[in-house]
Each structure stands twice: as C-alpha cells, then as structure tokens.
C-alpha cells in the first residue's frame, strides 16, 4: 500500500451529526482511494448539495462542489475534458434521485467512467427531514407531519435499467466491505453506482441502524453478477433481477450487477474521434504563440465559394 488513508483527510471540521452514517462512507472513500494509490490531485470528488455533498471538502482532492442535483453533469464535463482523472460523485437520495433524477438516468445511458456513491438515508437532512425518493410509503418519521404517501424508487433497479454497468449496494457502517465495493467500482471502466444505505439518526427514526441490521445480508459466493458475454446476460438475468428487486424484510448487499461487455463513453468517443484520449480537450494546446491553430477557409470548405 503506497499511501496512507490519512493523506486524503482534508484539514476541515466534518460538520455531520454524531452517529451519522456519512462518517462511515467518508472513511470507506479515504481507504479505497488510498489503497488504489490515486494521487490526491488526480482524484476528483464532485459533491451535490446536502449533507453528503460536503464530502467534497473532506477528501483531499481536486474537487468540485456542484449545484443541487447537478453533480453528475458537472462530473461528466470534467471526465470528458480530462478522461485520465478519477471522478467520484458523492450525493444524497434527494440530490441524485429527486432533483437530479434525469441526470442519474442519463449517466447510465452514456456509461461515462464515473463512480456514483449514493448516500441513501431516505430523508432530506439539511432541510429538516422531509421524505426523500427512497423513503417507503406510509413510513412516518418524526419529522413528517403525516405518513409519506409517495412510493419509494428502487435505486439499484433504476441504475440497472438506465444502463449503469456496475451496480452495488453497501452499508455505511460496514466500512471495510464498502471500501472494497468502492475500489471495484472505481476500477470498473464505465458508470458505476453504489447505493449506500445509511441511517440518519437525527431525522429518520424508523430506518435506524437496528432496522437495517435486521434486514441486510451479503450476496453469497454462489451469486454471480458478472456479465462477460450477451449470452451471460440472458442466463443470469433472472437471478440478478431477483436481487435488484429484493428490498423489504431482506436487503441484499454487495455487487448486484456488473456488465463487463460495454464500452465507456470515453471509449466510444475515441472510436469516433481517434486521438481524443491522447489530446483531450482539458489539456491539449489550442494555440501557437497566442494564435489559433485552424484557419476557417481551410477547415470550413463547405461554406467556401470561389467566384
């Protein structure tokens, strides 16, 4: 191990409530990027708005803090301009699946090589505990004046159907297992998604640590989520669907789906524009001695007319 996780700890007061699941996720991120030996200046953590978004300031990296819901498009722009960087999105359930739901789906379609970590506590913490898209119907947390009458979205199934090529679920307090999931997700070339269940001790008095502990289990060795060929997909789909759909008395954790057959968006760009990766937009030279490198009369011949 080349680096200590402490190297990634940014000097800042971590403002989360005592007992918050976010601490577990943050710790898992530190350890994962340390074990992956990613230089901090090459690590980009893009945070949304909400408690989870503050992760941007707690991980030492070359980071950006986006608008509410817009972490994914911002991360997409960063990654496509500099595909050599490691880009991780840290966002909450309201951020990624509520206000940013459209972008969450679009990332799957593009399969950009970004790791999305969903801090899933089913409530809006910073605005006093309103129901988030992952709160099941008829749950009445203390913060709600009446029971939640919206159904909950299934984040892993949504990610699967949107086209994410790596879909996993972790638990915030299981730091070691979560660290391994993050490492695998980051190594995967494509859009990866980890739904991290986490209690919000301040606002979600129903889905508590105890509530989760009674339900969660890790998928076993016998469960094979890896798709290596299209035939694989057909064969394994029923078992994968079963795991993706399971959320109730039992909640599976671990890698639920991992498609290794698809090109990332950057690879697709390289296919239509060979050379893109070698001279990506973020770092390529655009001028020589302060002068442009293309002449409109040479490049835009379709508009030139010789009279």
């Amino acid at each position: 191990m080349a680096r200590s996780w402490l190297e990634y700890k940014a000097p800042a007061w971590v403002q989360w409530c005592p007992g918050c699941g976010d601490f577990g996720i943050l710790n898992a991120i530190y350890r994962a990027v340390a074990e992956l030996d990613i230089p901090p200046e090459r690590l980009v953590v893009v945070g949304g708005i909400g408690c989870s978004g503050r992760t941007t300031f707690y991980v030492k990296g070359s980071n950006a803090h986006a608008l509410h819901g817009r972490a994914i498009p911002m991360a997409t722009g960063i990654k496509l301009a500099r595909p050599e960087l490691t880009v991780i999105v840290a966002g909450g359930d309201g951020d990624l699946l509520g206000i940013g739901g459209g972008h969450f789906v679009a990332l799957g379609r593009r399969n950009v090589d970004i790791t999305v970590i969903l801090f899933d506590n089913a409530v809006y913490g910073l605005t006093k505990g309103q129901a988030a898209p992952t709160l099941p119907a008829w749950i009445k947390t203390k913060a709600l004046t009446s029971p939640n009458i919206h159904d909950n979205v299934n984040p892993v199934l949504l990610a699967f159907s949107a086209g994410y090529t790596f879909v996993a679920r972790g638990y915030a307090y299981h730091t070691s297992q979560l660290k391994e999931l993050i490492k695998t997700a980051v190594r995967h070339k494509g859009a990866s998604f980890i739904d991290v269940l986490q209690p919000c001790p301040t606002y979600n008095n129903v889905m508590t640590n105890k509530w989760y502990e009674e339900r969660i289990y890790y998928v076993g060795e016998d469960y094979d989520p890896i798709i290596r060929t299209r035939e694989d997909f057909k064969e394994k789909l029923p078992a994968i669907m079963e795991k993706l759909l399971e959320f109730g008395d039992r909640i599976p954790l671990g890698i639920l789906y991992w498609d290794q057959t698809k090109d990332s968006f950057e690879e697709r760009l390289e296919k239509i524009m060979p050379g893109y990766m070698q001279a990506p937009p973020g770092t390529r030279r655009i001028s020589v001695d302060g002068r442009p490198i293309v002449d409109p009369f040479e490049v835009f011949k379709d508009r030139v007319i010789v009279t």
Binding site: V46, A64, A66, L67, G69, R70, I72, P73, M74, A75, T76, G77, I78, K79, L80, A81, R82, L85, G102, H103, V105, A106, P280, P281, G282, T283, I286
Partner: peptide
C-alpha cells in the same frame, strides 16, 4: 447532446474546470 439545459450548463462548467475551452 445532454438530457436538458440544466445538464448542458453544468457539464460545460465541469469541462471548463478541467481546463477545456467550454
């Protein structure tokens, strides 16, 4: 081509942060 203008501007911002003329 992004999924909406919210994505368009925020992706452009991301690319600009990474050094591209965006």
């Amino acid at each position: 081509q992004m999924e909406d203008e919210l994505a368009s501007i925020n992706a452009a911002i991301g690319a600009a942060l990474a050094g591209a003329r965006s």
